[in-house]
Structure formats: C-alpha cells, structure tokens
Design a protein around this nucleic acid. Sequence first.
DNA 1: GCGTCATATTTCACTGGTGAAATAAATATA
DNA 2: TATATTTATTTCACCAGTGAAATATGACGC
Lengths: 165, 165
Amino acid sequence: MMDAGISHVRDAVPEMPAEEAALARLLLLVGAQLQQELEHRLKPHKLNDSEFFTLMILFSRPEGSSTPGELCVYTSQGPTNMTRIANALVKRGLIERGPSEEDRRRVLIRITAAGRRFVRQILPTMFPHLKDVFVGFSETEKRTFGRLLRKLALNLDQAAPDAQP
Amino acid sequence: MMDAGISHVRDAVPEMPAEEAALARLLLLVGAQLQQELEHRLKPHKLNDSEFFTLMILFSRPEGSSTPGELCVYTSQGPTNMTRIANALVKRGLIERGPSEEDRRRVLIRITAAGRRFVRQILPTMFPHLKDVFVGFSETEKRTFGRLLRKLALNLDQAAPDAQP
DNA sequence: GCGTCATATTTCACTGGTGAAATAAATATA
DNA sequence: TATATTTATTTCACCAGTGAAATATGACGC
C-alpha cells in the first residue's frame, strides 16, 4: 500500500530518499494512531491528551505546582493553548491559579486535592491498554526503540534552528 | 525531566508501567515534533500535511485518481475532513472532482496536470530536510526502527477493536 | 419487486490548537 | 535614571479535524 505508493513516486522523482520517506510516514501514522488511542481512553473521563499531560506534570511535581510557561515546555503546547487548558482544568476544580510572588508577570498553577484524587482514579484504568501497546516487545527492543526515538528527537532539534526565531 | 516526572508518579501510583509510559510519551512527542517539522516545510507552499499526503497518494496512483473514501484510508483522515481537503485542493486547481460511473454514490478525484507539476516542484525542496532527520542512523537502525514501528502499529490495531463500532 | 440495511459523501456545529497582537512586568543598556 | 528590549500571559480570530445527521445510492433478503 504505502510502499507501492512510494515506489510510484520514486519512478517520477528518482532522487527521492524513499526509505526515509517511508519511515517518516510510518512514524507519523503510528504517532497519530497512538494519540487517537490515548484520546479514546481519556474520553470517558472528559479529558483530552494535553489536559491529561498537564495534570500529570503537576501531579509529578514535588509541590504540585508550575507556571504556564514551564508547562508549555513540558507538554509541547503553545502559550495560547495552555491558557485554554488551564481554564478547562480550573473550571473542573482540578487545578487552581494564583499569583507568583517572585515575578509578577507569572501565574502559579497548582494541582488541587481533587485533582490528585482524579489522577489516582483514572491512571489505573489506562495501564492494561498501555501494556497492550507494547505486547511482544522484549526489554532489548524497548530500549532500542527508546534510543532510536531519542536520536530522532535530537536530529529534529537540530533541523529546527533555522526554523526558530 | 520526563523521567524524573514519571518516577514521581511511580511513587504515588506504584503499579504504573513506567517504562511503557515513558516510551509512549516519547513517541507522542517525537511524532508531534516530526509533524511540526513537516508542516513548517510545507507552509511556504501553502499546503498542510493532510493536503500534502492526499496529493501524494493521487500522484502515485497509475491513473492519478481515487475516491474520497479510499483517500481516507490511505491518509488516515475522516470523511468530513477529506471533503474539506478536497475542497481546498480543487480550489487551487491541483485536483478535480467528477462522478464515478460504476457507483453513483461515489465521487472520483483526479490529480490535474498542474497538480503533478506542483508535486514535482515541491518534493525536491523537502529531500535535504528529510535526510537530516535520519542523519546518524545506520541501515540496520533504520530497518529496526521500521520493524518496531510496524509491530506497534499492529498492537494498536488490536487494541482498537473494542474501540471500533 | 419491495423493504431493510449498509455505504459514500457532504453539511453543520463543535473542539482543540495556532498566530498575531495587546498588556504588564522584568531585564539590559546607555 | 531613562529608555529599549525581552519575557509571561492572555485575548481574539482563524484553521484543521471530529461527531452527528442528512441525503442518495447500492446490496441483500424475503
């Protein structure tokens, strides 16, 4: 299917790096698929993935707090969307916003007790599915996969410089 | 950073499959990063990735044609969005729509000569960046990566059944 | 041949993410 | 000290994708 398509493209544009194209395409598809799976598991809890990861970051912090800018870095979201995410979580009482005392430009975001309870409640529902995703992977394969992904991430970071203002 | 966060979560919820969680998270992040890189490369051509892949599918077909439903399968988009994508490409004269003679419920979508020229024009601009993404990967590593991604895709397909109506 | 069910595409309303711009505060520079 | 530049967050408008519903056509069973 995809391979057949790529070889047809290759016929017309012979210098195309077919193997890399196929790998990139596969990664994009699998990534999208995994995202969809995650969204599906979160849907009953009325949560999307960026809200989920934001909550998880806060849950994992020693004091349960962070700033919008910091959360943006950890969740790879833009500031605009982080505002929206935080609004949604505040509305549900899972987090609260406050002023930062050391820098008045900053907002301080903290997970609430209800937020902690919520995380503890939904996490176990996701474990079986998470393990299913990696069924049939040996420990070596998992490690290799992680290594290759990190390598890729590094390359993408280097590819980005002229893209970053 | 991410690893520290996951071990904190592990403290609070000890039965969490930490390794799988970390891998899944990494895959989601790298996938998103690659997508962003692709979008960035397509932006000067006023094209987004789903439009790009739709065009590529048509370009690679022997007769340069397909149906919306078929394109949905190959590009992993929903029917609704394929309508929007096709509208955008028709508007630019890169594809054209026509009736299917064998099944009147179907629309036939074909790439135009202008569409073919457009693809031939933009593809070479993407090769250097595509190769950059896999710099430092040996042939074995590329093959392994592909194999692991396919394995994952298979698992995700199996995880999906109860999710599919 | 008719009724029921399934399929293909599109429309509409909504969700989640982005870019540009605005505002206030902090930092750097002269 | 005053000014210029940078940073942090939010608002607003827009984009791209989804779910539900609608409409027409095709397949299937009786």
